[in-house]
Design a protein around this nucleic acid. Sequence first.
RNA 1: CGGGCUGUAGUAUACCGGUAGUACGCAUGCAUGGGGUGCAUGUAGACCGGGUUCAAUUCCCGGCAGCCCGACCA
Length: 409
Amino acid sequence: MRQSHLFTKTEKSAPKDEVALNAQLLTRAGYIYKNSAGVYSFLPLGWQVIKNISAIAREEMDAIGGQEMLMSALHDKHYLQATGRWDVDVVYKVIAGDDKEPAANISWTHEEILAEIATKYIHSYKDLPFAAYQIQTKFRHEPRAKSGLLRGREFLMKDLYSFHVSEDDLYRYYDRVAKAYANVFARCGLKAYYTLAAGGEFTVSNTHEFQVESPVGEDTVYVCTQCEYAENKEVSKAADGGACPKCGGAVREIKAVEVGNIFPLGTKYAKAFGLAFTDEKGEAHDVVMGSYGIGISRLMGVIVEQYHDEKGIAWPSAVAPFHAHLLGLRGGDGDGIYATLQKAGVKVLYDDREATPGEKFADADLIGIPWRLVTGAKTGAGTVEIKRRIDSESRTVSVEEAITLITTH
RNA sequence: CGGGCUGUAGUAUACCGGUAGUACGCAUGCAUGGGGUGCAUGUAGACCGGGUUCAAUUCCCGGCAGCCCGACCA
C-alpha cells in the first residue's frame, strides 16, 4: 500500500486523555480512534492487525474442529431471563422506540443463544460432540473503562462453545482448547500462563485463564519459577516467595493481563433451554457445555504493551500490519522497488509521501513494521538499505536478498 | 458506584475578571533533502446551561465529557 493513500496520519504528541501506553502509541500511529470511553474504532492499519490476530485464532480453532459462525448481536430478553442473567449489571439493554422497558440486550456473551440454536439440531448422542465459534463484537458496560484496549465497553472477542455427552468428554476437549489457546498466544509473541482461577458469573467450578505478565495487568497471579504452576490470587493458597504446592520451587507474584479464559459450564444452559440428547439406551440427558474466550482487541493492546520502545511500536511479524516498510527518499528507486516487492508477494507499506527523511524515519519507528527498507541517493541501483525495527544498525543489500530476508524471517 | 483531577485552535499547551499567546498541524511560496529541515505569509480556539459582576474564557453552581485511585470485572 502507498502511504500517501492512507487516510490516517501520525501524530507527534500523545492525546491528553490517554494515559495507557497501548492507546497512546496506537492512536499516535493511526491504528485506532477513540469514539468514547472504552469504545474504539479500528482504522485501516489497526484493522490489518486485528485481521492477522483473528486469522491465527481461526486457524487454531479450526484445527480443533471448531466451526466458525456468526451469531446475532441483538438478543431478545427471553434469552437472559431463561438463565437469570437479565439483570447482570454490565448488560446493555435496548429500549426500542416508545417502549418504556427494554425488551432486548446487545451481545455480551452467547451461551444462551447457541444453546437455543443447538436444540433444533442436537437430539442424539450421535450428534455430539460439536464445537462452534465466532469472532464478534461484545458490549459490556464496564463501570470504569480504562487502559486503552485492555478494558473497553465494546471489544472484539473470539468465543468458542462446545457441547458434549458427558463431563469426561467435556474435559478432554477442554484440554485440547487449552493447547490451542496456548498456540494462539505463542504465535502472537506472548508468553501466557495457564492459570487456575474462579469462574464468576459463568460457572460455579474453577476455570482457567491465560495470563500475560504486565505491569498494567489488573490481575495478581502466583507463578512458580520452576514448573508450570500458576494460580490467580483469588483462588490461590500460595504466597509470594513461598513454596510451590506442585514442585516445591519458589513462587513469584506477578501482575498480569487476562487474554483468554476457558470455562466448564456443566448443564446449566442446556437445562434452561431444554437442550438434551438421547443416549444408546434411549435415555435422555442434558448436554454438557463449555465456553472459551479470547479478547482479540485486548490482545492487540497487550502486544503493544509488550513490544515497543521509546520511539514506537515494534510488532511481532505474525501480527504486523505489513511485513516491510519501504521508505522512498529522494534519489532512490521507490516506485521500482515497490513494484518488485509486490510481485514477490511481500506485504509492503510504501512511504511515497512528500516528506523529509527524518519524518519518514520517525514514522516508520512509530508504526513499527518489522522490516524497514530505505532507497535513496545513498543506495545504488538494485539495492536497498535494510534494518529490522528492533535492530539499531542497518546494512545495504540487493533487493533480492532483502526479499529473501523478509519472507524467511 | 464512591473519591480525586481536568475540559482553551485539528493536536499539545500558556496567560488572564476587561474577548486569548506559543509550538506542531494545515494552506501558499522560496530554500532544503538521510533522523520530525529553515524562512515568510496565511488559517483556526475558551464543552453546555445557569449564577455573581458594569464586564466571565477566568469566580460560583449544575450538567455533560475525559482521565486517575478504589469497588466491580462472566
